[in-house]
Design a protein around this nucleic acid. Structure first.
Lengths: 249, 249
DNA sequence: CGCAAGATTGAAGTTTGTCAAGAAAAGTGG
DNA sequence: CCACTTTTCTTGACAAACTTCAATCTTGCG
């Protein structure tokens, strides 16, 4: 367990600071949070549904997702998480995890104890607000996913998901030109979109045949951003990129 | 705008207190929140997607839902809200509403200014935590909806939704025996379940024919709770009924 | 009473799922 | 670096779930 200042949380802190400036004290409180660096294998379970987690998980490198499983065994991926995301900040107030957290490939994450986060929130109202904001944004992304999967066909869903991931990865500097690494299998994508992998494959093949995207080798290239945005009805309002309310107390 | 103590928030406060005891001071801070009582007509829009709300909405009587609309015009209902629910507590930190809030029938709600809520949260860390918890539970319910709509067939989805509403209404004393008022149209239900009203009608008709439920006259009766729970794979873990983490600072 | 909204039913079409098999790519051990 | 194994991707044919269009019936309400 590190207790010295590290930079593993830099992306997370940067994200918070684009929303609301922090004082040096507040920033120090974040960088000083106890951190346990963990390197995982591919398909590692960080938290399992029903467990009682004691730490929050922040992505340093790689992709992490949260999922729930129906009685039939069919899996629904709830959300994907990119570097800088605190994946399960909400577990600080829940006893039992209501979903599983898994890595896609070799991934680096940082674990932070719940009690340290709660103490930080109590000592620094601005940080309490920042944590709260982060979980609210997470919920907003879930609402859009509910609309996406409920009221758009698979073609639009797929386009929407790629647009969202492109924007979120771009914000942390992980998009090169029109390409970004996305080491997900088509089964992963299917489980996020609520369809079968076979169907996902056909829909993606059509997008590729139309020259809109390319994929393979664990990465995605978007050739026609405007077209993909139109197909996916992608509107960034729900990402609340403009930052939080101007209300300062 | 009331500034005297009222009991419109009693159900909300009760809900919070089942999770974590409040001090008299904290309770007073909640009951003393400025409140604007609003009686709405049926199908009234309280907040519209894209607006910049300045108040939070708490349900006093009736049913309220949040929805988003796809470009095709198809509507997705994100969640239903029962008396005692603070529907859009998350808007305190967002500038722009990412969804619409509507009432089903004549409904009573209470509006509370954002700045009052934020000030209360800043002055009372326990209340900041309680507000945070409330929005986290909301997000957990959304995750279950994502699983429900993505990985269960319409029969299971419908059963699950009725089970959830029964539990949530029971917690606020709005279930009589096996029946509860639910003044939703089948189109409302369809928009929540991500299917067409015609299909919803057929699925519900089958549940009725099997003697599991009755509906009509704006209310639902569940004759066979165990069977409905089994069909809907309903497990209350995601409702976090056990209260928040035991961690007290 | 009569209108309007919602519920119900039928028939036909579309999207998506299931089963099955082969091809390509990635990982593994020598 | 190659041969082998496993995973992932891709394609075809068929089945099931769900949608669409259309019409009728019922109910709530002024």
């Amino acid at each position: 367990m590190h207790t010295t200042v590290s930079h593993y949380l830099d992306r997370f802190i940067d994200k918070i600071e684009t929303r609301d400036a922090l004082t040096p004290t507040e920033r120090a409180a974040l960088t000083g949070l106890p951190q346990k660096l963990v390197q995982t294998a591919a398909r590692a379970r960080i938290v399992e549904e029903g467990e009682r987690p004691t730490h929050c998980c922040t992505v340093v490198e790689g992709i992490v997702y949260r999922s729930k499983v129906a009685a039939s065994g069919r899996r629904q991926i709830i959300s994907f998480h990119v570097p800088g995301d605190m994946v399960d900040l909400h577990t600080v107030l829940f006893k039992v995890a209501d979903h599983t957290i898994e890595t896609v490939r070799n991934t680096t994450v940082v674990l932070i104890p719940h009690d340290a986060i709660l103490r930080t929130a109590e000592d620094h109202p601005a940080l309490a607000r920042a944590f709260w904001y982060d979980t609210l944004l997470d919920a907003s992304i879930q609402r859009e996913a509910l609309l996406n999967n409920g009221r758009r066909d698979t073609r639009a869903r797929t386009a929407h998901l790629f647009c969202e991931l492109a924007v979120r990865l771009k914000r942390v500097g992980l998009v090169n030109g029109a390409s970004f690494e996305l080491p997900l299998t088509q089964t992963d994508l299917a489980d996020a979109l609520g369809v079968t992998p076979i169907h996902t494959n056909r829909v993606m093949a059509k997008l590729r045949a139309e020259g809109l995207i390319a994929f393979g080798g664990r990465s995605i290239t978007i050739f026609d951003w405007k077209a993909l945005v139109a197909i996916g009805e992608f509107d960034t309002t729900y990402l609340h990129l403009e930052g939080p309310s101007d209300l300062h107390l």
